[in-house]
């Protein structure tokens, strides 16, 4: 069954079709949420909330944009909201409480060495630290556009449509993100 067929079946209550539809997008969605929020818990929350909303509102999907766009509007809104809230919290205090006591928030971003991929161990910790610092300096929007373009390979036009803005604005956003990341990496690259 093609996507439109799956959507129509899911709209009429076919849960299997719904699941199939979810499975064609959910890995990319989860990766986006995980990379934006850098927390398994938060990514899991976004995943549930996004697809439950899809499930609840699918009947109102009228095919006047692609399902991809519709889904990512939901996902990016949730992620942006989360990032903004976090930003506010962070501005209030740069220190977070962890099980081991208070720590600087930046250092709570997980180290990828823990994922056990030998190739990633090769990546020097300095580069990693600088990449993280660069990411921290992006606004939630810049970060989202950057993730969607660089890591998810979406077209700027599609990103603009998802974020409710023009292709040009998405382009500017990406440009600023690139500049900030470059500055953070400095002579390192």
């Amino acid at each position: 069954m093609d996507e439109a067929g799956l959507i129509r079946a899911a709209q009429s209550g076919d849960e299997q079709a719904f699941e199939q539809l979810v499975h064609s997008y959910d890995q990319a969605v989860l990766r986006l949420a995980y990379n934006l929020l850098r927390s398994q818990e938060d990514a899991r929350d976004i995943y549930q909330e996004a697809f439950l909303r899809v499930h609840r509102n699918l009947h109102s999907f009228r095919f006047d944009c692609s399902f991809h766009t519709w889904l990512y509007r939901i996902v990016t809104n949730l992620c942006l909201d989360h990032l903004r809230k976090r930003k506010v919290r962070k501005e209030e205090s740069a220190i977070v409480e962890t099980a081991e006591g208070p720590r600087d928030r930046i250092s709570t971003i997980p180290e990828s060495g823990a994922t056990g991929d030998p190739e990633r161990h090769m990546l020097s910790s300095e580069l990693r630290a600088r990449l993280n610092r660069g990411m921290e300096q992006l606004t939630p929007r810049e970060r989202t556009v950057f993730e969607m373009r660089h890591h998810q390979g979406m077209r700027l036009r599609a990103i603009g449509e998802i974020l409710g803005t023009s292709e040009e604005a998405a382009k500017n956003c990406l440009f600023r993100a690139t500049q900030k990341m470059r500055a953070a990496l400095g002579e390192f690259v």
Binding site: R31, T115, L131, H151
Partner: peptide
């Protein structure tokens, strides 16, 4: 720079 950006993605657990 882009190659370095590639490294900034975390693989999904």
């Amino acid at each position: 720079l882009h190659a370095a950006f590639d490294q900034s993605a975390e693989p999904l657990p």
